[in-house]
Design a protein around this nucleic acid. Sequence first.
DNA 1: ATTCACTGCTTACC
DNA 2: ACTGGTAAGCAGTGAAC
Length: 820
Amino acid sequence: MGAHKIRFYPLDIMYKVKNSKPLIYLFGKTAEDKQVCVVDDSFRPYFYVLLKDEDMTDSFCSKVKKIKLEHKNREAAVTDTEITEKKYLGKKRKAVKVYVKIPADVPVIREVIKEWDMIDSINEYDVNYTRRYLIDKGITPLTLVEAEGEMIKLKSRVPCFKADKIEHYSSESIKDPKVFAFDIETYNPAGKRYVPEEHPIIMLAIYGENYRKVLTWKKFKTDKKYIEFADGEVDLINRFKEIIEKNKPDILTGYYSDGFDLPYIITRARHYGIDLDLGLDYSSLNLKKGNRKSIKITGLVHLDVFKFISKIMGRGLDTDSYSLDNVAAEILGEKKIEVEIDGLAKAWDDGTEASLDNFCEYNLKDALLTYKLCLKIFPNIKEMVKIVGLTVYDVSRMSFSQLVEWYIMKQAKDFNEIAPNKPHYDEIGERRKKRYKGAFVFEPKPGLFKDIAVFDFRSLYPTIISSHNIGPSTLQCGCCKEKAEHAPTEDSKYWFCRKKKGFLPSIVEGLITRRMRIKEMLKEKEKDVMLNARSESLKVLANSFYGYLGFFGARWYCFECAESVTAYGRHYIHKVINAAGERGFEVLYSDTDSIFLLLGDQKKEDALKLVENINSKLPGIMELEYEGFYPSGIFVSAKAGKYGAKKKYALLDDKGALKITGFETVRRNWSFIAKEVQEKVLDIVLKERDLQKAVKYVKKTIDDLKDKKIPNEKLEIYTQLKKEIGDYESIGPHVAVAQRMKNKGIDVGPGSLIKYIITEGSGRIRDKAKMKDEVKKGEYDADYYILHQVVPSVERIFDVLGYKKEDLIAGDQSKLGEYF
DNA sequence: ATTCACTGCTTACC
DNA sequence: ACTGGTAAGCAGTGAAC
């Protein structure tokens, strides 16, 4: 045989059944930057069976091997069994690995045997065959793999290679995948609702390295070389296909392309009978329905930048919404081109040259921003792919819980663990009802303070899980029963094994220590993109473990574990609070894992000594860290009573930057004018300590409001619709506005961000709330914005400075006017 | 008709 | 349905006055 070797970076995986045999297709890029498809027919689908009585193993095996049944015109059969020594939730178990012919046989065979009396449980029957392949073979997408075999002929857009042997080669990963970004503009005359069945795609922009193009099909004069005129929409779609086929990108990216662009293109293509067979195996775009639709293109990676940013990276962003404009502004520091997009349909109808030209530029810019965003987030996705071990397509669409679960699934192979099953409907219901106590939050004393030192536990919950060996397999172990250390829950009824490290605590510890090593390396090269991305991915995973333990849908769900983690968390933060008190520090605030100390007449070094002392007593890898020193900070009282408001404070750091937490300033459902005033007041108070200046500023704003000088944009209030309009029991302003929008034919539903302004009039606030487009200049209700927005946002800050609340509000506005 | 305690709802923090 | 609990604070709701 003339077998030879190739090395490649896998990008996508799929399987097909041929002659009753499943074939794995790995699509990727060779080390020489050529596309390739590697085929492997050696991997057999299987699942595990645990028996009640292990002595029955042989009789089970012979019985199960006899199963043969007709299913959908073919014969489903067990091909083999294998007796394996595994671990299941901390116990050694003999597990029978049951092999079947093709993946689709797994549920068929399971259905037959699931009522058999001798069976304790059937496991891993729902593990997707391609994911199973990646895990079992130790193959990580984007990471160098070596295959041995020979080239074969198959119906495919890329050369195919039949592998006799395939294995992970090195951790070296793909360098610069070829990225093409695209974006469409559609004809939308009413400017309200997208109707893909009726309205054509009129522009389609594509952007890649050294490639830019806008396809459109209404001819007009232009000097832009990137504009290409197609002969109508059919031609536009076909050109799009051609361009992708010809340029062979590794990644096709869009912004919300799972939810809008590609479904739209699919609908239009279907309308004309065009086959969008862009898959490298000539398969069509595959729309995966479900709660959140997604679109897969076999062989190349369809990456919806919006999905990954909104699900995983969004936490770190300050933006109010995940619109392309906002996200690009924050991540890239670049905005979209400003156009009145509602005018596109008219410009299209009228054929207004200058206008269409401009819309093309706008279209291209969107594709460009998407392209840049994709390059920017790709290192993060790549590192997550390398850690979790699944494809870019999967990882970029996963939620936190799924990432954690698949990371555990991958580790389970190395730890020889069998995965527990997902809960069924009833079990989910039961789990969802259960609640447990969470973190401790210290009630602050309202006031303006000087010299504050802040400390926090480094990854509190993950380090607790590791240091106290918390996991389902170590819970209530028999070996420690007599002299166990109990978790500090209210009734102290749980303990965790102290003798043997559990599976989950081991892998959490692995994540933390790996990240510590990377942090160490980052000290040398701060800006290293790859290391930063890896550190971030490890952090995201470790931090999600605790939530995963308490998540109703988790395979490794463990209510007692989650409850114990927070109990230990409260225990340790209280220890720190007490120790600080004993050392003569006044504790200003604490939330979950952080503590704010007033230095008073002590020095920073004294506080650091305290931390050192605490650290010497902490178990395992737990550690309290110095977070920062703040020359000035303010805590305010809560609206509801005379107590200090939690989760609401502002600090001035030693570089002069203001750090605002929890205040209206950082909440999107407050008007910009109120947020602006509040931020300014905090700034003046903390930096300049000039009360009169702050008062003057507020007074000026109130006057401007009264004089109708404030533009509408500063008065918009954003509130998200979280469910169907009809499902609301209580109709708030945003729901009322959404209803009226819907009546007008505007497409709003769960997830829509409703923007409204309160206008003059009588009745409830919701009756005065109007969508922003309906409000003309100066039609706003000045009293509302003064009394319900601006004054409430600053009154408790002034309160701290000695002004009585009564003086500020005093019921009617005339008195308010007097004060300011 | 007005007041008030309560609930629903959204969005923050960690 | 797609990680957890803690918390603030709005507007609406409906019973008591």
